[in-house]
Computed example of a mutant assay.
Amino acid sequence: MNRISELLGIQYPIIQGGMRWVARAELAAAVGNAGGLGFISAHTHASADALAREIDKVRSLTDKPFGVNLTVLGANAGLDYDGYVRTIVSQGVQVVETAGSNPAKYIAEFKAHGVKVVHKCVTVRHAVKAESLGADVVSINGFECAGHPGEDDIPGLILIPAAAEKLKVPILASGGFADGRGLMAALALGADGINMGTRFMLTQESPVHPAIKQRLLEATERDTVLLGRSIGDPSRVVKNSVSLAALELERSKNVTHSDLYALTGAQRWMDAFATGEVEGGAFPAGIVTGLIHDLPTCAELISRIVKEAAAIAQRQLGFSAALA
């Protein structure tokens, strides 16, 4: 048991990211039952009451720890974030993953009620700030990740050890992880565990439509693109007709956020996740799709990752012994 496992009360330091629309009760419970930590997404739900029902649903499926992702974005200003926070606290949720804008307001509230906070960020400076605000864990997202990787373009191979040099709290490595090789690499780089989004999206318990899953299984490491660079809000999505049209639009002059949103808005890709329209939206996915070739259950996936990691550790220990 390492620092992450002990702190979060789980068997393995393997975390399922709080992906919007995807991170629902069935997925989070399956990850928890398999020994990891699953998250549900608060802003998937239109109200605090709906979130409360989803929390109840998780508890009907598992007695293991789970968490709630609270991603605070200006684009979602109409959502009842204060209501989400009250629900998380009143429902006795043990762990929250904060992301997006400055989490100071919410971290203070969660800490006052004994809720452990994992803050997701994409730079070392933001990780240090989150630690100073009281975050219990920092999840550091490399350039490889799905969704918003920031504007510094720093891959995990550099970002993870750079964060480890500065932080005292445990670190989760996020972006580019799918198997035991990734887990061992993250640990070697100074992280205490891994946070996986795309890999858990491609499991049996994920609610994503089978046609979208099949498209992602066929993808290579070259089949994602970054949209939104021109407006200072890059986002990694799957390469399809919608995302390529958005890239072409960005090459024009004076493109605005609203121009891009017509093509890349969240509602479009969430609808695509539900209907299976592979050309229906610019849906988020990480470069790691190129390493994913099957749709296991969460239990099969976590068991396989642990066995792969153990085999790698055994081989490396043998190599070290030979050198000694």
Rank of each mutant, 00 (worst) to 15 (best):
G32F: 06
S252L: 10
V288T: 02
R181V: 03
D271L: 04
G9Q: 12
L167F: 06
G38K: 04
V117I: 04
L7F: 12
V122R: 13
Y106K: 14
G290V: 01
Q11W: 00
G150N: 02
L157S: 03
A185E: 05
T87R: 08
E144H: 03
A28I: 07
C121G: 11
I55M: 06
N2L: 04
L187Q: 13
A313M: 12
K57I: 04
A310Y: 00
R53S: 15
G32L: 05
L27Y: 08
S101Y: 05
L73V: 14
V208Q: 12
C121D: 05
S132L: 07
A34Y: 00
G182N: 10
N33Q: 09
A34F: 04
R222T: 03
A313R: 11
F177Y: 15
D179L: 09
A162M: 14
G176L: 12
N2M: 05
V22Y: 01
K105F: 14
K307H: 13
V95A: 03
G175P: 06
P149E: 13
V238R: 00
P207S: 13
M196S: 07
A127K: 01
D56F: 06
V169K: 05
A135Y: 05
T71A: 15
T198W: 01
N254R: 11
A324I: 07
L159T: 04
Y81G: 07
E250H: 10
Y81K: 11
L249F: 13
T297I: 00
V242K: 11
A311T: 04
R181Y: 11
V237W: 03
Q11E: 15
T297Y: 01
E144W: 03
G100H: 08
A324V: 07
P207G: 13
V288K: 01
T289L: 10
V306E: 06
T123S: 14
L301P: 01
A186G: 15
A162F: 02
Y84V: 11
V225S: 09
Q91D: 10
S206Q: 11
V118D: 08
E165Y: 03
S60M: 08
A262N: 08
G150L: 04
D153E: 10
E221P: 00
R236P: 01
S174W: 01
T275S: 14
R222I: 00
